[in-house]
Design a protein around this nucleic acid. Structure first.
Length: 587
RNA sequence: GCGCCUGUAGCUCAGUUGGAUAGAGUGUCGGUUUCCGAAGCCGAAGGUCACAGGUUCAAUUCCUGUCAGGCGCACCA
């Protein structure tokens, strides 16, 4: 519809240019056509006359008149008006406004999908939380956002590959493994002070219990031996980092490399399974779980470092290898290999991103928590240094949701184990409400998440409002059956012209906007537009419901109305589907 | 100190990538049910779009500065 109008304007411009009424260097990209906010301004408005005022050296209303006169006749247009400073307002014909209902019913679940992306390959990486503990509500926003962005891109024709980067290498995982072992020692009856920097969550005890069931007391070493030569912990006037690293060394040497690896994997797999499970239950599906350890152990990380060296992008200082990221606008250079020979987290990130580029994606989207924004520059710098096309890489930041319990702010710390898990949120609020709530706000908006409110299941939560609209249509059809009546789609479609009420016209407009909203939300990575659209559509439906009877004495009118609300139900279902929220028949 | 994000109704947030009279939910106040689900609907009140400049036909939107809040600034992940 919009495209049709645009073509008409372009052909008007072309004929004006050929008549030399307008200068020739006007590009069709200048043609902007927008939905009007106000019904009295018609359906679409173009500001083209005002944009052209300067280059054409004519006043906008004069240009608008020229364009309107040159506009070809077409059945979709009911009326064209020039208004305000030079807007050209288009009103669509009743016939073309109704057309959308037939379109919705015909395409059903496919309505709103498009081929905009043309099959381009897009990789979307999201959540990627360290497998050192269960996901908490902070990860929930990234999970909801990432999965809806993926669905939207898929809906508009991109070939989407969703990925979770598993940080299963590195020091944090060693600390987890060490924590598990120490809890195991406690279960074996040993007594000592748990390291201040260890993982203290309940889940560590569970894994330790599994370890004990599998291995009995065979991994038991006396505490005196375990703590022998280990630097003091912070509360004892020492350094907590050196303390925990010392304990990790003890674990490795006392248990041996093979046994330590078993212990390590037990913890890793237990937590990773939990995360997988959790995300699946939250409606966040993945195509691939990409292991950092696989990059390290297959030498890909070392290779990436070598490539940087070969490109003359590294230098050695104080025993470490530094990447010249300042050459690419970073505020300081970054260490890639530490003086102890260990590669940094950044090194594997370079390798991982290089791997993404090598896999041939047209677009690479990283969705990170806002606390990682400092990494954007250095990661992009490394790809630039390795001659990759950095414009393919987009990093989308998701701001933090500050948790409240009523008026009270909820503190969060993974180490101390005092946090609200995503699973807890799901159990109490439900997947639907949680997802809708998270995605309802722009990702760059710092949002307040009130757990009390989300748990309350009150109508403060807009997801019920939208779902209720869907259920309400279903209810109408149940009522229809009870009255021994039925719905005839053909009769309905043939009588759409009877739907002349303002409420009905408003719904036509809303339905035809849906594909535009999906496309815009997809390409600008802003799923909250879809959430807001659904709330608006639901409100328009509820208003309509209250104002008019669907089952009237006039059979043709009734059939037309039933056809309209069936289309409304379909679009709500499609929209909720993209958001990963269910569309219940009754509530 | 530097960087990123944010500042819009009492509160939570939209604002179609510069457009016409700045919107919704919630809260407050008032109305609404012989009728398809009242988880609904209708109305009222509520604004210096943080502040000050600049860019142009037009600025909540873009630029600069100031103020305020969040988050980062490791040879941690």
């Amino acid at each position: 519809m919009k495209d049709q109008l645009k073509e008409l304007i372009e052909s008007a411009l072309a004929s004006l240019i050929s008549q030399q009424s307008l200068p020739a260097d006007i590009s069709s990209a200048d043609v902007q056509l927008e939905r009007t906010k106000d019904r009295s301004h018609g359906d679409f408005a173009s500001n083209i006359a005002m944009v052209l005022a300067k280059p054409a050296k004519k006043n906008p209303r004069q240009i608008a008149t020229l364009i309107v006169d040159a506009l070809p006749q077409h059945e979709v247009i009911e009326k064209v008006e020039i208004a305000g400073p030079g807007f050209i307002n288009f009103s669509l014909s009743a016939n073309s406004r109704q057309q959308v209902v037939a379109d919705v019913l015909k395409k059903a679940g496919q309505f709103g999908l498009s081929q905009y992306g043309n099959g381009q390959k897009v990789q979307v990486e999201f959540v990627s939380a360290n497998p050192t503990g269960p996901l908490h509500v902070g990860h929930g926003r990234g999970a909801a956002y990432g999965s809806v962005v993926s669905s939207l891109l898929k809906a508009v024709g991109f070939d989407v590959h969703r990925e979770y980067y598993v940080n299963d290498a590195g020091r944090q995982m060693d600390i987890l493994a060490t924590s598990v072992w120490l809890r195991y020692l406690e279960k074996c009856g040993e007594q000592f002070t748990f390291p201040s920097n260890g993982y203290r969550g309940e889940y560590v005890l569970d894994i330790a219990e599994t370890l004990k069931q599998q291995h009995g007391n065979t991994l038991l070493h006396p505490v005196s031996l375990v703590f022998e030569g280990v630097p003091a912990d912070e509360p004892q006037g020492g350094d907590k980092e050196l303390h925990i690293d010392g304990l990790t060394q003890q674990a490795k040497s006392l248990l041996g490399a093979d046994m330590y690896r078993q212990l390590f994997d037990l913890g890793l797999n237990a937590i990773l399974d939990d995360i997988r499970n959790d995300l699946a239950g939250f409606g966040a599906e993945y195509d691939e779980w990409f292991s950092e350890r696989s990059l390290v152990e297959s030498g890909v990380v070392d290779k990436a470092v070598e490539q940087l060296k070969a490109a003359n992008m590294l230098y050695q200082q104080d025993g470490a290898w530094w990447f010249k990221s300042t050459d690419f606008g970073d505020e300081k250079d970054r260490v890639v290999v530490r003086d102890n020979g260990q590669a940094t987290y950044f090194a594997s990130d370079v390798a991982y991103h290089l791997n993404k580029f090598n896999r041939g994606f047209d677009q690479i989207i990283d969705i990170w928590g806002a606390d990682h924004h400092g990494y954007i520059t250095r990661v992009k710098a490394s790809m630039e240094a390795l001659n990759q096309d950095v414009s393919k890489l987009k990093v989308l930041l998701v701001q933090f949701a500050v948790l409240y319990r009523g008026k009270e702010k909820v503190g969060m710390s993974t180490r101390s184990g005092e946090f609200v898990t995503l699973r807890e949120l799901r159990d109490e609020v439900g997947k639907d409400a949680a997802r809708f709530f998270y995605v309802m706000r722009g990702a760059d908006q710092h949002m307040d998440f009130d757990l009390e409110l989300a748990k309350s299941q009150s109508n403060d939560n807009p997801v019920y409002y939208v779902q209720y609209a869907h259920a309400r249509v279903c209810s109408v059809f149940r009522q229809l059956a009870e009255r021994q009546m039925n719905w005839d789609e053909q009769t309905g479609l043939q009588n759409l012209s009877l739907l002349t009420e303002d409420h009905e016209q408003a719904l036509f407009t809303m339905l035809s906007r849906y594909p535009e909203v999906v496309e815009l939300a997809a390409i600008t990575h802003t799923p909250h537009l879809l959430a807001h659209f659904l709330m608006d559509l639901a409100r328009d439906f509820h208003t309509y419901y209250n104002a008019h009877q669907f089952m009237t004495d006039d059979i043709n009118l009734s059939q037309a109305r039933l056809t309209l609300i069936t289309a409304v139900r379909q679009v709500i279902a499609n929209g909720l589907g993209l958001m990963g929220v269910s569309a219940p028949q009754s509530m």
